[in-house]
Amino acid sequence: MAPERESGIRERTPAGATAATRHRTPRLDQPRPPRRRILPEWDPDAFGRLSERIARFLGTGRFIVWMTVVIIMWVLWNIVAPVALRFDQYPFIFLTLALSLQASYAAPLILLAQNRQDDRDRVNLEQDRKQNERSIADTEYLTREIAALRTGLGEVATRDWMRSELQDLVKELEERQGRSERVVFPAERAEHPPGRDAEDR
């Protein structure tokens, strides 16, 4: 069995192959070499920022004013200028083509800027939702803590309660002292009658 395996390995491996020239499977512990791309690479984030700038400029009054000025100058030049200097005769096909090209580029740029704004809004909404959840959790925790403190304070002796208890004790002691004086002094008078005191004198 072992000789058959060795012969199969020898058949698959070329006779003059070495360890360097032998075909190996790609290793998983090493990064793959970068592939060559036909199209040029660009940074999507930088392209998105550029599209937002263009879309922001297209939505301003300055762009409308400049575009109106350029169109008026274009039309006046091609009407008033000498025939040899006119580059776009009436019906101004080149102007129509330029405006169509501008519109065909402006629409995707505006959509790309809107998509980026939607992504930002979605992230902001998610962050706001998480912040609201944290605020609600903190509020519930503080509410439970305040309720526990109120419950604990209900069992704690306050200053007014201590004062009322001490006043009750003082009254009770005064009443007991008054009773003891009423009981003790008559007994002492009975033990020592006034006539005996006069005799002692």
Results as ranks from 00 to 15, higher is better:
24 R>M: 11
24 R>C: 11
26 P>Y: 02
27 R>E: 08
28 L>C: 05
29 D>M: 01
29 D>K: 03
30 Q>I: 09
31 P>M: 01
31 P>E: 01
31 P>T: 00
32 R>M: 12
32 R>V: 11
33 P>D: 09
34 P>S: 11
34 P>A: 09
34 P>N: 08
36 R>S: 11
36 R>P: 06
37 R>V: 10
42 W>P: 00
43 D>C: 09
43 D>V: 02
44 P>R: 02
49 R>T: 07
52 E>T: 04
55 A>V: 00
56 R>H: 10
57 F>D: 08
57 F>T: 07
60 T>A: 04
60 T>K: 06
60 T>G: 15
62 R>S: 12
62 R>N: 07
63 F>G: 00
64 I>S: 15
64 I>Y: 07
65 V>P: 00
66 W>Q: 12
66 W>A: 15
69 V>K: 07
69 V>Q: 11
70 V>R: 07
71 I>V: 15
71 I>H: 06
71 I>M: 12
72 I>R: 09
72 I>K: 01
74 W>I: 01
74 W>S: 07
74 W>Q: 00
76 L>P: 03
77 W>I: 06
78 N>I: 03
78 N>G: 05
79 I>M: 04
82 P>V: 01
82 P>W: 01
83 V>E: 12
85 L>P: 00
85 L>C: 07
87 F>Y: 06
87 F>M: 09
88 D>W: 01
88 D>V: 02
88 D>Q: 06
90 Y>I: 05
92 F>Y: 14
93 I>C: 04
93 I>H: 12
94 F>A: 11
99 L>E: 07
99 L>K: 00
100 S>I: 13
102 Q>W: 12
102 Q>C: 13
102 Q>T: 14
103 A>T: 06
103 A>M: 10
104 S>R: 04
106 A>R: 03
108 P>M: 06
109 L>A: 07
110 I>S: 08
110 I>H: 02
112 L>W: 06
113 A>Q: 01
114 Q>A: 14
114 Q>R: 13
115 N>W: 08
115 N>E: 14
116 R>I: 02
117 Q>C: 01
118 D>K: 15
119 D>W: 00
121 D>A: 14
123 V>C: 04
123 V>D: 12
124 N>I: 05
124 N>P: 00
124 N>W: 03
126 E>D: 08
127 Q>E: 09
129 R>H: 08
129 R>S: 10
130 K>T: 07
130 K>H: 10
